[in-house]
Amino acid sequence: MKDQLPETVDDFEEQQPPTNHVFMPPSLDRSRLLSGDSYTFYSPIPRKVLTSSSIINEPTPCVLGVDEAGRGPVLGPMVYCAFYLPQDLHHSLLTKDYSFNDSKVLTPDVRSNLMRLICTSDHPLFDSCGWSVRVLSAREISSGMLRPSSGVYNLNAQAMDATIELIRGIVGERSVDVKEVYIDTIGNPNTYQKKLEQIFPSLKITVAKKADALYPCVSAASVVAKVTRDAALELCYEALIKNDQKLALEEQAESQVPVDGWGSGYPSDTRCVSWLRNDMNPIFGWGDECRFSWGTAKDLLEGKEGTKVEWPVEDDNGARLTDLFVRQNTGKLEGNGELRNWYGCRGRNPF
């Protein structure tokens, strides 16, 4: 597929790399992130949503906004966020008291600070605002998109499913009384809205282009999604650096990781492309941090940087690929076969 490039010049800010001190939100699941898994995180239901202000003890009516970060990068996850709060606080809290806006027009420090306040106990934002994120790993994005043509799970379908899961988790499983939903569109807003209205007929749903600049709850969702993705990128890169430094010491060789990092992870970022080129295994490519279905990755693997692999004929005296992992005469996958010593150990070459 073609890389997901920004739609407008305004989207360039989305491609800026995270700062070195991005806030690490509780939405980061380190073990699942580093293992290449997708996952969903839900914040606690805020006190002002649980406690009705009306005389009759009725549920607190809420608004909910959905937005994403990281649709176009070749590196790192795509993060979807659903952000909700009481209807009567929608504009007063998010725009008058705290200046939420489309995350792309806010500086990284401002975004991190807003996220920190959202996660700070007894703060007005913590007491009033709930949120959830669906972190779609690079590995699972690519595995869906690289299925045989009859079963391709494209990026729009993955994004739609993430949105549906988040809304169901908040409205259905957590019984938050959401009245209005605002969503930044994927493709045609009318088509997208009709699909969601069929799934959630009781909700008033508005799907619009640039919803993150029009509706404060979508702006807040864009901030949470962007900070979560930035933090995920930083965490993955730090883990990669530590692993490569360990290998460098073991092999008494210099790490191939560029000093200036991998930038924003977008194909248009020269630091990103430089990292991909320098850190690429000519046969196996990269790790779980890379979207192999992106054109940038495909071009590098299939170009002169990559190594063409000729696979042996299947009927080769009954030999199997797993035989390379098996200790002789035992038949167990616990031996010291050539590839077993390499597989899963980034940077090692068995040949």
Rank of each mutant, 00 (worst) to 15 (best):
D177A: 15
S202K: 08
V171M: 04
R168L: 12
Q158Y: 06
E173C: 14
L203S: 04
R139A: 13
I167M: 14
I183D: 03
R174L: 14
L125N: 00
P189R: 13
N190R: 15
Y182D: 02
S137W: 03
S128A: 13
K210T: 09
N190G: 02
I205V: 08
A159C: 14
T191Q: 13
G169L: 09
P124L: 01
G187T: 04
V152N: 04
D161I: 07
D122A: 01
F126S: 11
R134V: 07
L136Q: 12
V133K: 06
I167W: 05
K209E: 06
Q193P: 00
N154H: 12
S128N: 09
R168P: 05
S137P: 03
Q193E: 14
M145Q: 15
K210M: 06
V207D: 03
N156R: 10
A138V: 07
P201D: 08
V135Y: 03
V178T: 07
Y182F: 12
L166F: 03
A211K: 01
V152C: 07
E197H: 02
Y153E: 06
W131Q: 06
A211I: 00
P201F: 10
N156H: 11
M145Y: 04
K194N: 13
D161Y: 08
I205N: 02
R147D: 05
V135A: 05
T185I: 08
V171I: 11
K209P: 00
M160V: 15
F200C: 00
A159S: 15
E140T: 10
K204Q: 13
G172L: 07
I205M: 01
T206N: 03
I164C: 08
G130W: 00
P189K: 09
A157L: 15
Y182W: 06
E140C: 08
T163K: 11
S128L: 01
